[in-house]
Design a protein around this nucleic acid. Sequence first.
DNA 1: CCCAATTTAAAATGCCTATTTAAATTACAA
DNA 2: TTGTAATTTAAATAGGCATTTTAAATTGGG
Lengths: 219, 219
Amino acid sequence: MPNLKTKPEKTRTRLLTAASRIFAEKGFQDATIAEICGQAKANIASVNYHFRDKETLYLESWRFAFNQELALYPPDGGLMNDAPAEQQLAERIKSLVRRIGDENSYSFAIIHKEMAQPTRLLADILEKEINPQRLQMFALLKECLGQAASEQQIQYCHASIMGQCFQLLRLKHMQGARPFRSHPSDLSDTKAFAEHVVQFSLAGIQAIRSQTINLKTSV
Amino acid sequence: MPNLKTKPEKTRTRLLTAASRIFAEKGFQDATIAEICGQAKANIASVNYHFRDKETLYLESWRFAFNQELALYPPDGGLMNDAPAEQQLAERIKSLVRRIGDENSYSFAIIHKEMAQPTRLLADILEKEINPQRLQMFALLKECLGQAASEQQIQYCHASIMGQCFQLLRLKHMQGARPFRSHPSDLSDTKAFAEHVVQFSLAGIQAIRSQTINLKTSV
DNA sequence: CCCAATTTAAAATGCCTATTTAAATTACAA
DNA sequence: TTGTAATTTAAATAGGCATTTTAAATTGGG
């Protein structure tokens, strides 16, 4: 029994790495197997040997990138479960922003592309991998907003937070394309931006919580 | 026999309308002239007759959509220039969200696609048409944040606001693709979402303003 | 050295696109 | 009505590039 994992993994891994980068940059349709193999220094037929087809490579490379990033930036930031909800939320936002801002992170860029040009290929895998994170954030938001918060308020706050995080992705992706020459958005300091989002969002959440309570007590 | 209701639109206008819709839906590359002409009920050669080529149609249809939407939702919301900066900012956000949320608005969806897959074709036109709006919002933000605000803080707050607005676009575009079946994001009530973004953002801005002032006075 | 796993080059396969041309039709003005 | 220009139409042009398959060459372990 020859060892199937040591040597052969090399090309396979190079393909996964290159694929996640290229898929993130161009999306599924515009990414070509030729370019991926070029960056991976592999023959053009290797994709069909190691993976069956382009679609499978797409799924595998996303999973590959996502797991790598998740190991690098734990979603809970190593925080206890009994910490205050706002602190947990803050850690979660920071982890998210860092994962998005990392130059070598591609899973969110792939999601972003998938949102812009849905192929439905990632739908199942996203539902399975991302929805849990989503639900956890909903729970934290519910705590932060108070039990009087409506489902809609929670959804809106979630949209506000995710929108800010994805904005970083957008600006990161457009760095080379210089859409607005005059006011260059310098979001390169990911850590500072993460803390801004935390501060901005916690204040927004507090404002909505106060208003909800005031409404409740005044009725 | 005055034209009552059914005045047949000019082919050129039908092409512009259909083009803006299709370009918004698929982006420049994936949109085909055939499909545009199909929806416009025009012959496939009409694009090359009325516009020179696909690229010109792209530019013209964006301009067409943008001007229509701008006339429909004035950016300043008909507010005086001497109104409080926060109120002006609120109007500006509402106008933006409404323009993005309108089912028949396509110029922002086109920008969104252009950001995801830059063709550089719209770069000049965007610089000319959108940058002024951008600068006005920067000025309002500077007022709201106080003169002690740093350039970075202004940029971050701008990113926070724009990110929330674009989030609406993302979710609107993905309605049919249902990426998360369990928790359907219902952002259909555009007006309510607009007011949420205003409340959320003004609170975030206030928090940053307070912190900046405190830092300043305590040093 | 042998065999299976892997890599390679080249060809097969497939499909769709923007654009042009020239003829047919329409609209309109004289 | 008629002549002319604008518009619309159908068909042909011309180009391009992608994924996948095949069969031969190579590699490396036992």
